[in-house]
Write a protein that binds this DNA or RNA. Structure first.
Length: 273
DNA sequence: ACGCCCACCTGGAGGC
DNA sequence: TGCCTCCAGGTGGGCG
């Protein structure tokens, strides 16, 4: 599930469910996800209040009253669910073998992190600089700091395919395999095109860079809105639509699936150049 | 520095 | 029914 729009939906849900509540109890069901939890993870959470839940790229950041921040990445299959604690029940709530972390809040809300593939990540940091991925992360695509100039400068001299570059979180934060395909289709650009071709050697944006920067914003904004209304938004223009007719008006192409850097890319060879 | 490959892990879908 | 293969929306380490 989780690229920027889905992570943003989770952020909104978590903020509503947890903001201002104190963490009364933390239950760790295993010692690691993709990496081990900090050894003092439980004690550094317990007793502190969740002040806000923000997002950076695909990471969630819960600011705690202790001054520390709980950092969460959902990986491929991570998900949170929240429920009210049933008062006086001594039996544990229904759980699944992939419920790895259970956080009980003073408000009576129980937040459970479930992650079958365990590609997720949880850590505690004091500042954003404490975490390598955050330090190196590119601009937020929906903010003012990301535009065609930034995109073009990052493309200078790069022989990688555009699609592959879009997955690099150091270029722009939060774009994943689905929205990379979607943005390229929206921009009318081939996913196989070398990144360097959208900028001049000096790093100035060509027409394609303006189109692509704008397309990234439009596609992600729409998905954020759609996710805010209903969780599984589900309608993509090219992703998982191999052999279907290209949805672009007046285009008669057929969507193709190719593999780039080991991942599926979907595109229309007719209208994406 | 760059670009490519693969490993990390489980589960679901589809073929035989 | 079962067994096998392939596929999955992310990351990062290691290699040439």
């Amino acid at each position: 599930m989780p690229e920027l729009p889905e992570v943003e939906a989770v952020r909104r849900m978590l903020e509503r469910a947890t903001r201002g509540a104190r963490i009364d109890r933390v239950e760790l069901r295993r010692a690691d996800l993709r990496r081990p939890f900090p050894s003092d993870f439980v004690s550094r959470l317990t007793g502190h209040t969740i002040q806000s839940v923000s997002r950076r790229g695909k990471y969630l950041l819960a600011a705690l009253s202790s001054g520390e921040t709980l950092l969460v990445h959902l990986g491929m299959s991570g998900a949170f669910r929240t429920e009210r604690r049933r008062s006086s029940s001594r039996t544990s709530p229904p759980s699944d073998p992939h419920d790895h972390v259970v956080i009980v809040l003073s408000s009576g809300v129980v937040v459970t992190f479930n992650d079958p593939r365990r590609f997720g990540l949880m850590d505690l940091i004091r500042a954003n600089d404490d975490h390598e991925a955050l330090r190196a992360m590119g601009p937020e695509p929906l903010g003012d700091t990301f535009d065609a100039m930034v995109l073009a400068r990052a493309c200078v001299g790069k022989r990688v395919a555009l699609k592959v570059l879009l997955l690099d979180q150091r270029l722009v934060a939060g774009v994943g395999n689905i929205y990379a395909s979607e943005a390229l289709h929206h921009a009318g650009l081939s996913p196989r095109r070398r990144a360097s071709t959208i900028a001049t050697p000096a790093g100035a944006p060509r027409e394609a860079a303006f189109k692509l920067a704008a397309a990234i914003k439009v596609v992600l904004e729409k998905a954020v809105d759609a996710n805010a209304r209903a969780y599984e938004s589900g309608r993509f223009r090219v992703y998982e639509r191999e052999a279907k007719t290209c949805p672009r008006r007046h285009c008669t192409g057929t969507i193709r699936r190719i593999t780039q850097a080991g991942r599926s890319t979907y595109y229309c060879p007719v209208c994406q150049r």
